[in-house]
Amino acid sequence: MAAQLPPTHVAASFPLPHVLAHAAIAPTLLAQGAEGRLYKTNHLHPSRPAALKYRPSKPYRHPILDARLTRARILAEARILYRCRREAVPVPLVFALDEAAGWLLLEWISGDPVRVAINTWLAQKHPTASSRPRAAVAQKVASLGSRISEEQEDDDSTHQQKQQQQGDVPKHQVRENTNQDDKGTTGKWSDEETENGGEARRRIREDAPLKALMRNVGTVVGKLHRAGIVHGDLTTSNMMLRPPPTADSGIETAETATDSGAKASLDGDIVLIDFGLSSQSSSDEDRAVDLYVLERAFGSTHPRAEVLFPEVLEGYRGALPAKQATSVLRKLEDVRMRGRKRSMVG
């Protein structure tokens, strides 16, 4: 079957997992991580798109240990997803699994990662001088000397290159990025230093749809924690923004979104994905670390949206019993002071 795949499929470089050997519609390899691979395929019928998470066996591990680890990790992830689902936390459904063969078949979530949605939104609604059309802003650029922080650029581009290697970055993202690289690296500049920067920050801070999205992110994370689960890898890449149901199917939406002319939208439901590092815990410490990781991810992926992170915490506060929320947020202060790893001294 692998031979039938068109050459554009990266899948050709890996043998397909056994379970996909008879797929009527060629599966697409979406991502390749250290632990496993993610394919897009179908469940029962082509009308039910699904994501297959496959953990291949590692030849360098002892076979018995290898089988046991694969089994334990597949089951842990599936159990947590099912538990989330029972507690009404928005996560993909578990369709099927084979813990011995190392695969997990999950509901396909249409739409873009929140990371892409926010960056597209920022690029369209709050263009920086460098990403605005040159003619329109030439004057302002000259008078105000707006430049974009180089440091910020570096963060963005490395992150996106990494995503690109994983093969999930829509074209407009890449394009937007090269665009910024071309013109944006003219010098150092920080938001607070100029009036214009303050103005831009104020506009972002008062962007109602973006605020609502941030609040929703907080609510969803709060619900997850209330269910007794910590995610372990909360980033805006591990959240999908599922567009509201329309006449378009999910596939069509994905295609139009990659179109550079697509209108940015923050409508839709947040769905948490990738529970490969999650665990069951209700401790303030683990919850606070989850929030801290998300905060740091915001800082590096969408530095300009970071001013809205307090909205996330507000949404979070609303989703948990007041007492628990307060103690988690207090703990977050501690974690910010020392970082993700707890001190082993004392």
């Binding site: 599936a78 099912y82 029972r86 459904l93 578990v94 813990e99």
Partner: peptide, 13 residues
């Protein structure tokens, strides 16, 4: 139905 499918997938494990 979503929960039913999950419960079946996780049967006895």
């Amino acid at each position: 139905q979503g929960l039913v499918l999950g419960a079946m997938a996780l049967r006895g494990v």
